[in-house]
Amino acid sequence: MSFQERTTIIGLIVSLCVIYFLTTTMYVPLRAEQGAELGGLSGQAYLLFKIILGAIIGSIVLTIVSVIVQAIVTGDEDPSTLVDERDRAIEVYGDRIGYGITGAFFMYGVAGLAFLGWDASWFLLVMAYGFSIGSLVGCVLRLVRHFRGY
């Protein structure tokens, strides 16, 4: 398994964790109309900030751990972290799909604000879901391309 394939799997795991935390810590209270317990929009943004920070740190830690595990399993003291032109092409493909999905969620959020009487908390949540679901789908499609060859 190449470095980029492992990185994609890590991205997928992190995206799933982010969606889980968004759902349990933000969606469920908002759905139960207990948004005030989150501390309003500012409190919700602070929570989101912590989730994003956790995702970044989690990605870095998992990447380091995966390189160490590969070194132990294969006995290779200097495991390759090479990213080549095919990896980059696959990454661009996944990013493009991910951006499309994020854009669709943004339009949904704007429509919610404009026509459905949403407050800003819901818009923020929809945007957070947009980024994480876009990332998740991008990772899945990248993984499919990696395993199919291109």
């Binding site: 980029q4 394939e5 080549d84 032109e85 095919r86």
Partner: peptide
């Protein structure tokens, strides 16, 4: 050639 084995396979 400086690529991954997976790229040569593809």
């Amino acid at each position: 050639v400086g690529v991954t084995r997976q790229t040569i396979v593809a």
